[in-house]
Design a protein around this nucleic acid. Structure first.
Length: 233
DNA sequence: GCGACAG
DNA sequence: ATCTTGTCGC
């Protein structure tokens, strides 16, 4: 049967409580480890797709060999939407399904690449930070938009980067804008848990040899969409 | 109070 | 995130 809820016991249901949880868990983020070097071991992409009409959420976790970028293993998890989309509280909407999908993997996840932010967050505890603390795995966030942050335009060539700063917090650096392909809009990288920013940027470039987004994100996005179509219609 | 705002 | 056809380009 598939009647078990996918949402962890005690998962927040109010915005106020969710913010409290972020402030509590934030103290457990590890920001001083360099993180695994790019190209070795495994790397995992996670992403989520929704059908809010039917209250269905599907997460996908795709493990890649970090050297060849070939798929090692795939897993999905289907459940009910646990939280509405609220900017700054995305983790409470996405993580229950992501944790379930990761739990179905048999291969070691290695570094996990999230679709969204880590440190670059109003309270410095985005999706990637949250997932890292809950799993203990090294995590990074690669987002498609600058959210509320400011950045200079990186150089036009692949590999160019610029600072992503929080103007509200005195221009504190919270991540990097990274050009992964010549002349293509940059992605926005921030650290999650147990990975340094330079390492996170290196992983992002290594994972995006051909397209703007990392292969991890592309594979996970594709898989959760297919799984949602199959679960719904 | 108003507007902006990862996915 | 999601709603959606064709179209320009490698």
């Amino acid at each position: 049967m598939t009647t078990m809820s996918i949402t962890p016991a005690g998962w927040p249901t109010t915005e106020a409580r969710a913010r409290e949880v972020q402030d509590e868990l934030r103290t457990r983020v590890e920001l001083h480890e360099p993180g695994p070097p790019p190209g070795t071991g495994t790397v995992t992409g996670v992403d989520v797709a929704y059908d809010d009409e039917r209250d269905v959420v599907v997460a996908a976790a795709v493990v890649l060999d970090a050297s060849s970028l070939q798929v090692v293993e795939e897993a999905t998890a289907v459940g009910r939407v646990a939280f509405p989309y609220v900017p700054g509280l995305l983790a409470f909407r996405e993580l229950p399904a992501v944790l379930a999908a990761l739990g179905r993997l048999t291969a070691p996840a290695g570094l996990v690449v999230c679709d969204g932010y880590g440190l670059a967050h109003p309270r410095r505890f985005g999706l990637a930070s949250h997932l890292g603390v809950l799993t203990g795995l090294p995590t990074i966030g690669v987002a498609k938009n600058p959210f509320t942050f400011a950045h200079e335009e990186p150089g036009a060539l692949r590999g160019s980067t610029s600072l992503l700063v929080d103007d509200v917090a005195g221009a504190e650096e919270v991540g990097r804008a990274v050009r992964t392909q010549d002349g293509v809009k940059p992605v926005f990288v921030s650290v999650g848990h147990r990975v340094a920013l330079d390492t996170a940027v290196a992983h992002t470039l290594h994972l995006a040899p051909r397209y703007r987004l990392p292969e991890t994100t592309r594979r996970a996005d594709s898989l959760c969409r297919r799984a949602l179509t199959q679960a719904t219609g």
